[in-house]
Design a protein around this nucleic acid. Structure first.
Lengths: 158, 158
DNA sequence: GCAGGTTGGTTGCTAATGCAACCATAAGTG
DNA sequence: CACTTATGGTTGCATTAGCAACCAACCTGC
């Protein structure tokens, strides 16, 4: 026991969850700047557009699953993107609740502009790693993500 | 050029900034659950308390620098923590603008409860890595963080 | 010692977030 | 066919974040 009454001190700067958070925010922040100024798109909006580029025609719910963004947030972002005519929406005739979303022509041109810039930035970011280190980093992230997901499920069951 | 008019598709799930963001949110989220229910403390509030445990007596501004949290958010969180008597505040007689913050006795007891749990969780999380992998991961994070910081500074100067 | 600039901190305002309640459609059950 | 349950999506509401304007205390050069 120290004289400060703290039985053990947490060193925030060395705490993994904190370091991940800071790193992630820094990285996402810089990259968001590249399209925020040019197209006035938020990170959330860009992620929606990104999955629609990958999976044209999916529903809002599927977008939510793929981006890990709350469905209410998706709903509002979608209506904003519709207003700005960056995406288009139809409804599934087989199931009239289900929306089918895709990028509009304008949305596609924005997409085509943002994607290379994003990859360029990713490259610029990762250039401090060699190929072997990239593979390692990628592998470690995947494994940690999977493990964290398993932990999360455990907590929910208890 | 594909028939979808997209010159190049971005695979969000494999995009590093995105993967970091998801991982970070998962990790921080689970750990926050451990003290959110018990003490009704948010991540922001906990981070403030954490640096005060490490550096008792520092000012709000220093807390902001160490946690990377906006000073306005710090300001509001501090007044909330003061109300709840989790921290204490005095003002520097040498510079009466400057606050000197520290954990209160109650704050310390909360701190003493949360810290071991947090470390336990960190351990539980990292147990999917061996020692060598932990060192690697830690090293890669640090280097990437440093590199990203440098990139950020570059952007601001241009 | 006082005008101009800095720094520490607070507050106002707007936007974004997250939860829960809700509505409409669909699917399963007796 | 009703009747319940599940699903996709929207909306209301309370909280939080983030920027900019601001105030008050300090510091500097004259």
């Amino acid at each position: 026991m120290t004289d400060s009454d703290l039985s053990r001190v947490l060193t925030l700067e060395r705490f993994f969850p904190y370091r991940l958070s800071i790193l992630s925010n820094t990285v996402s922040g810089i990259i968001a700047d590249t399209y925020k100024d040019k197209f006035a798109i938020s990170i959330t909006e860009w992620r929606i557009m990104a999955v629609l580029g990958e999976y044209p025609g999916i529903s809002a719910d599927e977008v939510s699953l793929k981006t890990h963004i709350e469905k209410s947030i998706i709903s509002r972002a979608v209506s904003k993107l519709l207003q700005r005519k960056l995406i288009e929406r139809e409804f599934d005739p087989e199931d009239r609740r289900r929306s089918m979303l895709q990028l509009s022509p304008t949305g596609k041109s924005v997409y085509n502009d943002v994607v290379p810039t994003s990859y360029e930035y990713e490259e610029k970011l990762l250039c401090c790693f060699n190929d072997e280190e990239r593979r390692q980093f990628s592998d470690l992230i995947d494994r940690l993500h999977q493990h964290a997901g398993a932990l999360q499920d455990d907590e929910q069951h208890s």
